[in-house]
Write a protein that binds this DNA or RNA. Structure first.
Lengths: 230, 230
DNA sequence: ACGCCCTTGTGAAAGGGTGAACAAAGTGGG
DNA sequence: CCCACTTTGTTCACCCTTTCACAAGGGCGT
């Protein structure tokens, strides 16, 4: 079947690498816009905020797309990463919940030029349904199933209040959606074959607070542990 | 100085554990609201979406706060985790950029009851400055430095377009802010002592797309690699 | 054509995180 | 008072990730 001898691609790209590929992609697109034809691992790593050894190892998982002594061809690498991430195809996305967050997502420019197309906005509230947001008419959530089927939606975005999230999630899953991006602060229950990623605004703040507390405690030479002991 | 002999807290809590503590905290608060007094590691782990061994190990980094044969006291554990994360003190937060995203953040309820207080909303656009959002009057970004000082802001949130992010970041740093939550799709340059966390809406989608592509490729029995070889 | 210099790709080692499994410790019933 | 049962806290082995260091490979000037 595979005749070519030298194919270093493992088909098993580490999760940590996958999470960084979008970073590299963005840095490369910035270079491309500035008309820069090639870039070394050191330069690209600096632009993406990682160290160069990590970057080289990450890219080596996709194949040998660099040229020793020169670096990487910007356009070629953009294409290879895009393809690996599946961004060369068109992904239809539905956003449920058109509050401030849903609106922010709908208006976020970063989707269009990366293979994502917002195909539907759904909400429950009568005063939102029918209004126009980001060039789309908001439809009632009752249309969820029919929209998923007609628009071939594979990725669903949940931007509802926490109380509605699991219900929306169940309807997504029942309709055949297999990837869900969840902004509601709840743990979603899904079957094995469905991927969920969570973005939680307050968790990030809490992690920052932890480090911030540690910094200020150190500055003051305090020993929190003993002070607060029972 | 430290007189008590048995103090298992290492002061070196793994980063992965810190990232999960907010999850446990939320699950515990839900239990607390339902009036449940104690919880076992298995139950709490299920509610937080992790396995029980991991949960027990995470909690053991804070100390021995459970009772063998019984489980954990919900209220006590809430207090211990809150304290560890630094949520028992009041954190003043400033949000720069009052677009849809900034508004979503300002209206997000999850902050108030976790020690975070939004102390200022700043923007540049004349049509936003002066308007009222989430009970606060939006002020012009020129006040950034004075607001940081007068409100003792330790955490800054950047919700501006990408083009403005680094500039805002520099001003935050110069004014003495040491923790930054960045929603703009750029890599921020900061000095060593400043913590930056990034939330990127489009990166999460790209990671989902990668897995989704893989799933559909597998379903169709395709061998992408060979098909697309040069 | 040759050799110098630069940069990639990778092997090996170190570090951190995960999960299974178990001993220690506490509860409650008889 | 003792025993059976429950659940924690921890040990250990494994896996994934990061990092260092360097050999292999390609361009460029002479």
């Amino acid at each position: 079947m595979t005749s070519r001898p030298s194919r270093p691609r493992d088909r098993g790209i580490p999760e940590a690498t996958v999470a960084r590929l979008p970073l590299y992609l963005r840095a490369l697109q910035a270079l491309s816009e500035r008309g820069i034809p090639t870039v070394s691992s050191g330069e690209l790593a600096a632009a993406a905020g990682v160290n160069s050894a990590k970057l080289r190892k990450d890219l080596s998982h996709l194949g040998s797309y660099g040229t020793r002594g020169v670096g990487y061809d910007v356009e070629y690498l953009i294409y290879q990463i895009s393809r690996e991430l599946g961004l060369t195809q068109d992904w239809a996305v539905a956003i449920i919940g058109v509050g401030n967050l849903g609106r922010a997502l709908a208006n976020y420019g970063g989707f269009g030029n990366r293979g994502f197309r917002i195909a539907a906005l759904l909400d429950e509230a009568p005063d939102v349904v029918g209004s126009e947001v980001a060039g789309l008419t908001v439809r009632h959530i009752d249309h969820l199933e029919s929209v998923v089927r007609s628009e071939k939606i594979a990725i669903g975005v949940i931007a509802t209040p926490a109380s509605a999230a699991q219900r929306v999630c169940d309807r997504f899953v029942a309709a055949g959606v297999t990837s869900i991006l969840n902004f509601a602060p709840v743990v979603l229950n899904v079957p094995e074959h469905v991927d969920v990623r969570k973005v939680d605004l307050s968790i990030e703040l809490q992690i920052l607070a932890f480090h911030e507390q540690r910094k200020s405690a150190r500055d003051q030479g305090k020993d929190w542990v003993d002070v607060l002991e029972a």
